[in-house]
Simulated scan of single mutants.
Amino acid sequence: MRLSELVGRLQPAVLGMLHVGALPGTPRNCLPLPGIIDKACHEAEIYKDAGIDGLIVENMHDLPYTTSVGPEITAAMTVISAAVKQTCPQLPLGIQILCSANQQAVAVALAAGLDFIRAEGFVFSHVADEGIINACAGDLLRYRKQIGAEHIQIFADIKKKHSAHALTADVSVSETAKAAELFLADGIVLTGTATGMPADPEELKEVEQAVKIPVLIGSGVTLENVRNYLDANALIIEYDSVHGTP
């Protein structure tokens, strides 16, 4: 099932972030790749049993992030994603590779049989904790075309968290969303200012009025505030939300 089949429902789809362990070659790596794969598949099973609508595989623990992601990360994310796909063959699956490794994510999605990617830095530049991130839409969509991956959808973060947006202070969130739609994003991801921080419900209303493509909430959704986001097309949650950890 494609994610687009879920985001058209009357109620928001719920997507789980599958944060894989720190990968080989990164400073915090402590598990061999087979152990990382086993843990990822175990968490995927928990999500599936909880009734999740889809999953996004992400290398969140590869701190500190770099804009020069090596081939070892792409290779590891491919085998992990393929294993998760085998574990949850009926779920829509996506991938995000930090930081801003969007072409690598498309390649992994194609090789592992995934459905979509979550991309940062799609339109407009911003200053992130990894450095300056420039817009990638033109190069990314051309790359997707060149490798025959046009069926892989792209859901683009805008006004990305953990970033300064002084460079585009005169560009509103709705204008940013319109630019992403114009540049052929398949959906928009709205977040708070940092991981775990809630998105602004007013921004959700503003963006939904500005674009016709799906709008996803990408951070900070809890049982206490979920009512603020029921008009979104999808809600992205973390493993702790289904595992019962505060």
Rank of each mutant, 00 (worst) to 15 (best):
S125F: 13
S125C: 08
S125L: 04
H126Q: 13
H126W: 09
H126G: 02
V127H: 07
V127Y: 09
A128P: 02
D129R: 00
D129T: 01
E130R: 00
E130M: 05
E130S: 02
E130F: 00
E130D: 13
G131Q: 02
G131F: 05
I132L: 14
I132E: 11
I133K: 03
I133V: 08
I133Y: 01
N134S: 14
A135V: 10
A135Y: 09
A135P: 07
A135S: 11
C136V: 08
C136L: 05
A137H: 11
A137N: 10
A137E: 13
A137M: 07
G138A: 05
D139A: 14
L140F: 07
L141G: 04
L141D: 00
L141N: 04
R142V: 11
R142K: 13
Y143F: 15
Y143K: 11
Y143R: 13
Y143Q: 04
Y143C: 03
Y143P: 01
K145S: 14
K145E: 12
Q146V: 11
I147Q: 08
G148D: 12
G148P: 08
G148E: 13
G148N: 10
A149N: 07
H151A: 15
H151R: 15
H151I: 08
I152E: 10
I152R: 07
I152F: 06
Q153H: 13
I154P: 09
I154E: 07
F155R: 03
F155W: 12
A156Q: 07
D157I: 01
D157F: 02
D157S: 06
I158W: 02
I158C: 04
K159Q: 05
K159H: 10
K160G: 07
K161T: 01
K161S: 05
H162L: 02
H162T: 02
H162Y: 06
S163Q: 00
S163A: 05
S163Y: 00
S163V: 02
A164M: 09
A164P: 00
H165D: 07
H165Y: 09
H165E: 01
A166G: 14
L167E: 00
L167Q: 05
L167M: 11
T168W: 06
A169Y: 05
V171N: 00
V171Q: 00
S172H: 07
S172A: 03
S172W: 06
S172N: 09
V173T: 15
V173R: 03
V173P: 04
V173D: 10
S174P: 07
S174Q: 13
S174V: 00
T176C: 09
A177S: 12
K178I: 14
K178P: 03
K178D: 11
A179V: 06
A179K: 07
A180P: 14
A180C: 13
L182I: 04
L182F: 05
L182S: 12
F183A: 12
F183K: 15
F183H: 15
F183D: 11
A185S: 13
D186S: 15
D186I: 10
D186H: 15
G187S: 12
I188T: 08
V189Y: 01
L190H: 07
T191R: 01
T193K: 04
T193A: 12
A194V: 03
A194Q: 06
T195N: 06
G196L: 04
G196M: 03
G196N: 10
M197Y: 09
M197P: 01
M197Q: 13
P198E: 05
P198A: 02
P198T: 04
